[in-house]
Design a protein around this nucleic acid. Structure first.
Lengths: 194, 194
DNA sequence: ATCTCATCATAACAGTTGTTATATTTTCAT
DNA sequence: ATGAAAATATAACAACTGTTATGATGAGAT
């Protein structure tokens, strides 16, 4: 197994502990135990705890990013935007664990400005992708020409965020169908009236 | 100063530390220092840390609840619903501190099921209030009759949640006007077409 | 076979944590 | 003023934290 693969294994162990125990109870020793080895392994692959946590978060983020970008290849038009948003939602049970990591990190960032900036980088990235998608739809006359695309991208991210965080607290409140319905309705409001 | 007032003073000190340092760095000693006294005071008024944290969260929650209920007295119709939602949004800078506590607690709850339930209680409460408001609007024929009110209440809570958490990471992304615009647009989609 | 270095294990360090017990002070009715 | 009770302070406890240093083990190349 390569160095990078082993690094990911350690991060995956950290990911599992975060989901199960929460971020502030994810100690080096707990990660090592989850990994089935000693803390020496953890410290060998990561300079410190923060580097490890950020790496684990990056894994989560890149997973959804990969799915979203895959949509760019496949579909087209409004449907493509919809599919992209769906990829970020906790439609399946397995997605909820990723959302737990996301939310845990969000809360953990309060009072740590540099972690807020880390989080912000990823928000900006998502916004940019969605904004680009909206721009394409606008030039194709599929959505209204008078839309403030920055605002609309923000709104879509907020919608996803609201659903994602809400579902952690009340897992049964949003079925996959309801999540998709809300996204569709939101997007429908943007359509060109032609 | 009464016992209950002093309790609130301690909780307020805790609130300030949470906003400034984050929840997991809010130690008993840090709270005592913020209060300008010893840890003996903190432990005297609260059985343990969790009771203190939950009490501080309850203060935050009751503040917005009070504002929302005040709307029930004043306005009427669609405008009243709008105003209620506005009360929960971080429209002013001072509101953002409360949102930090809310989000910090949300993240802190990951991996602590009983804290998730605590959070859930408050979500359910909000949903119920909004749901009741929607029901009134429905019987008054102001919003569409075919709406699933539970779903719509969930959607509104998610909208508020998405804006609130997003604004912590990117404080300049949503101006007060933009927040209100998004809420108005969301609610407009519910209006009866009469 | 031996040397090298990546990998892993163990142990110790200094700090911090929540909690508890025990003083000390203040308040206040009698 | 005096005693009881509330409020506050201090100190100690054991457990846990991230980090670091130091050994041990392993595999692969020469």
């Amino acid at each position: 197994m390569s160095y990078e693969e082993r690094r990911i294994e350690v991060a995956n162990a950290a990911w599992r502990v975060i989901v199960r125990e929460g971020l502030d109870r994810t100690s080096m020793r707990a990660i090592a135990q989850e990994l089935g080895s000693s803390t020496g392994v953890v410290t060998h692959y990561f300079r410190d705890k923060e580097e490890l946590i950020l790496f684990a978060l990056e894994q989560v983020f890149e997973n959804v990013l990969k799915d979203m970008k895959a949509c760019t290849k496949r579909g087209q038009g409004i449907d493509r935007l919809e599919q992209m948003i769906f990829m970020a939602l906790p439609l399946e049970v397995s997605d909820k664990a990723d959302w737990k990591v996301w939310v845990a990190f969000l809360g953990y960032s309060i009072g740590r400005e540099h972690l807020v900036q880390e989080h912000r980088k990823r928000y900006d990235f998502l916004r940019q992708i969605i904004s680009q998608e909206l721009a394409d739809l606008q030039t194709a006359n599929l959505i209204r020409a008078d839309l403030d695309l920055t605002l609309e991208a923000n709104a879509l991210v907020a919608l996803v965020d609201g659903i994602g965080t809400g579902i952690i607290i009340c897992p049964e409140q949003f079925s996959a169908e309801q999540q998709q319905y809300l996204v569709r309705r939101h997007i429908n409001a943007l359509l060109a009236s032609s």
